[in-house]
């Protein structure tokens, strides 16, 4: 396995590839692409278990800020487990436990004393299946801000609109904010869930196979969005779909049987993998 300290440098060299013909209506003001990349999440020697089953073996990995990092690998390789340790969603599984260190800036994410509530505000998550609450569209997006902030009604409306615009779903829902979110299509629901996650102002967005339950058109819309959002957020995406990883990520990490096999710039991993297993997986020999 490559030395983790070089990984950050390697990631820093990643240039977001220009995506011609994929013009979104966003023209974001902050252009960070030329600045050197900073480190967002640092994983060192992480071992994780479900009961007696060891799901992760000695993972060391750097997640660069304002980039899309893809975690790929066959099912059961531990990529979702790793993602769910980033914001401690694994706390909901009684048998799950981990040793090692995961840091977000100065915060030790695995520490007992870390406030998971605050942590999850800083690290948002989007799940495999869109899971809007059985409430109105507005209330879905306002859910997080209402928990964490004291906002007046107009301020709340601003936040909701902002989040929905950021998630590129505003134009589709602006006329029916009061109608139930479950009436939206799958793709809209998923973008609504992204808006919901954005609305609390997180630093990192975790996405657990966000497109696996969507049709191709909705997938495209969500991928566009992911690519766009990385300007402001650090994004970690778990995916089954190698094309997706190739399309919308800057860095790719390949996992196999709970071990990190290879990590590097997405183009490198897909075109010139260093490990045989990675090549086999990427070329579709298994998985």
């Amino acid at each position: 396995m490559s030395d983790p300290t070089t990984l950050a440098n390697e990631a820093a060299a990643i240039e977001p590839r220009p995506r011609d013909g994929r013009q979104t209506h966003f023209t974001h003001s902050r252009e960070q692409t030329s600045e050197p990349t900073t480190l967002a999440i640092r994983v060192r020697d992480l071992n994780a278990w479900y009961g007696d089953f060891q799901a992760l073996h000695a993972i060391s990995l750097d997640i660069p800020a304002n980039r899309v990092s893809a975690l790929i690998g066959p099912s059961g390789c531990g990529k979702s487990t790793l993602l769910r340790w980033f914001n401690r969603m694994n706390d909901t599984i009684p048998s799950a436990h981990a040793r090692g260190s995961v840091n977000l800036g100065d915060t030790d994410l695995l520490s007992r004393t870390t406030d998971v509530v605050d942590l999850r505000r800083r690290i948002g998550i989007v799940f495999q299946r869109p899971n809007p609450f059985p409430k109105s569209i507005f209330d879905n997006v306002a859910f997080g801000p209402r928990l964490h902030m004291k906002l007046s009604r107009t301020e709340l409306q601003d936040v909701v609109e902002w989040a929905l615009r950021k998630a590129a779903v505003w134009d589709e829902v602006k006329d029916r904010l009061a109608s139930p979110a479950l009436g939206l299509s799958g793709g809209q629901q998923q973008r609504l869930c992204i808006a919901r996650a954005i609305a609390v102002g997180p630093e990192v967005l975790l996405m657990d196979e966000p497109c696996s339950a969507l049709d191709p058109a909705s997938t495209l819309a969500v991928e566009d969005l992911i690519f766009e959002l990385r300007r402001q957020y650090t994004i970690v995406i778990v995916t089954h779909n190698m094309q997706q990883a190739a399309r919308c990520s800057d860095q790719t990490a390949f996992f196999y049987e709970g071990r990190l096999i290879e990590v590097g710039a997405t183009t490198t991993v897909f075109t010139k993998p260093k490990q045989q297993q990675t090549e086999d997986y990427v070329s579709g020999k298994f998985g």
Binding site: S29, R121, P145, L147, H148, M149, K150, L151, E155, D158, V159, E161, W162, R165, V200, G201
Partner: peptide
């Protein structure tokens, strides 16, 4: 406009 306002809200002290 909206971006500025919202970043102001989000930056404000949390509950």
């Amino acid at each position: 406009d909206l971006d500025d306002r919202v970043s102001k809200y989000l930056g404000r002290s949390q509950r």
